[in-house]
Design a protein around this nucleic acid. Sequence first.
DNA 1: ATTCATTATACGATATGCCGTATAAAACTA
DNA 2: TAGTTTTATACGGCATATCGTATAATGAAT
Lengths: 82, 82
Amino acid sequence: MEPIARTPKQIGAEIRRYRRRKKLSQTELAAKTKLRQATISTLEKGQTGTQLRTLIDILAALELELVIRPRSSASKKIEDLF
Amino acid sequence: MEPIARTPKQIGAEIRRYRRRKKLSQTELAAKTKLRQATISTLEKGQTGTQLRTLIDILAALELELVIRPRSSASKKIEDLF
DNA sequence: ATTCATTATACGATATGCCGTATAAAACTA
DNA sequence: TAGTTTTATACGGCATATCGTATAATGAAT
């Protein structure tokens, strides 16, 4: 299953998923990244457009990486996501 | 080879690669996205942290998508050069 | 229900991105 | 070479993200 993200909301949801997988609270992640807990909260909610710098800091702290690629065609069924 | 991006510079380089593949100038892409040519220029150069919203608009215009995933260990050392 | 941890929201202040416009620099092409 | 397209950079002004700090809401567990 591949975590595709095309909107801030999807990106935030992915971040949250990975953060919890690592058993970190927003506060703990904030400490690692020198960001505020509030900033991480808004990113995960996808409420506002955040800054790319913020996303990158968080990805690094969670040992994640970004892959940019052409959009996968409609062959991807929703069922495959679960 | 997978287009992994962990820094603004790498992200910018990927965007540029895909834009050129579609034979679009920065000005043409700017028109599609309602951004300025200057904004696209700075994003591609990776000079400044841009806004996530800007990146997403451009990805959409280029029909690209983002995948977030755990870091692949293979390229770790190489990426540390940046 | 109460407590404790976690997450969401609020305030003014500061930093930074994007805007419009414009020009300069580079890269192609004839 | 000169001319054309493309990309990089500059300015003031506006919009917005993050800051620090703090509090309110939610969730989890006993």
